[in-house]
């Protein structure tokens, strides 16, 4: 009698645990699509953040193509399964690439349209902190972060909660990291 009671409780506990686990996993799967290698690392705004992503991707040995000014046509030619776009506007970076902010917006627009067409999911990162949150950066963040399937943000760049708000409003999973280097293990975990 006593023995079966214990057994019953154990079964019940296991069932509950199992259910919780199943729901948990189902939930996660529902929120983010699967991200696969190889990845395209590009920029939204031509700040050095994209180069940071490249260095981080090398550290965790992801297979990647690095093209800060990738166009829709180039994406079509590439053999990539995920786009990782690092948002951050730099007047100097844009100047060096021979682009102005409007050129950049239309390039990224076309790139994202093409990615959607090819069913390539987009991860947006902001890893240069509060200093890369000027008006021009904010314009790009508001426009393109809602297009993503996953957001990675370095904490001080989200001091005002803009990324959390965009994540809530658009139902996009978000991961906040203390330091830029913290984005590397997340990319590694996220991308198969």
């Amino acid at each position: 009698m006593k023995k079966s009671k214990i057994l019953n409780s154990a079964v019940l506990a296991l069932t509950i645990l199992g259910l919780v686990f199943a729901i948990g996993t189902a939930d996660e799967e529902g929120e983010s699509p699967s991200f696969e290698q190889p990845i395209l690392i590009t920029s939204i705004g031509q700040s050095p953040g994209a180069m940071m992503a490249k260095v981080l991707a090398k550290r965790v040995e992801l297979e990647f193509v690095f093209e800060p000014t990738a166009t829709a046509e180039q994406l079509e030619e590439m053999d990539v399964n995920t786009v990782v776009a690092v948002v951050g506007a730099s007047g100097k970076g844009l100047g060096a690439a021979g682009l102005d902010i409007d050129d950049e917006i239309s390039r990224v627009n076309e790139l994202i349209c093409k990615a959607n067409e090819l069913e390539i999911p987009l991860i947006v990162m902001h890893i240069e902190g509060a200093q890369r949150r000027g008006d021009m950066s904010n314009q790009l963040i508001n426009k393109f972060v809602p297009e993503s399937y996953y957001i990675i943000v370095q904490k001080s760049g989200n001091d005002d909660g803009l990324f959390t708000q965009l994540s809530d409003e658009n139902d996009i999973p978000i991961k906040q990291v203390e330091k830029a280097a913290g984005a590397a293990p997340i990319l590694d975990e996220l991308i198969d």
Partner: peptide, 18 residues
Amino acid sequence: KLNLDLLDIDMKLESSPA
């Protein structure tokens, strides 16, 4: 820069204007 982050030296990256 990424290594300096770990030492709490916050050096931002800036592109040389072309």
